[in-house]
Design a binder for these strands. Structure first.
Length: 84
DNA sequence: CCTGAGCGG
């Protein structure tokens, strides 16, 4: 199904912050929201997250530019996110 | 202080 303006980001370093991600993804477009998924019990990062963009072409641009690129020593996996 | 496929606080 169509995904909208959010992109799924996998293979994140466990120590990366949402702020770091926001800065990194600003290269590709207008970031409006950054969400790293944390474990509810331990509050530790699960190693993936989501970036929301102002428009769908920015999200698509992020996939094209930042997928399979290095971020803090890891190779990011960037793709259009599924609808919630 | 540890982990490593995947779609959420």
């Amino acid at each position: 199904m169509s995904s909208g303006f959010s992109v799924f980001v996998g293979n994140l370093p466990y120590r990366a912050t949402e702020d770091d991600l926001g800065h990194y993804f600003s290269q590709a477009g207008n970031v409006t929201q950054v969400r790293i998924v944390y474990d509810r019990q331990t509050n530790r990062a699960k190693g993936f997250g989501f970036i929301e963009f102002a428009n769908e072409q920015d999200a698509q641009n992020a996939v094209n530019q930042l997928n399979d690129t290095e971020f803090q020593g890891r190779n990011l996996r960037v793709n259009l996110a599924n609808q919630r």
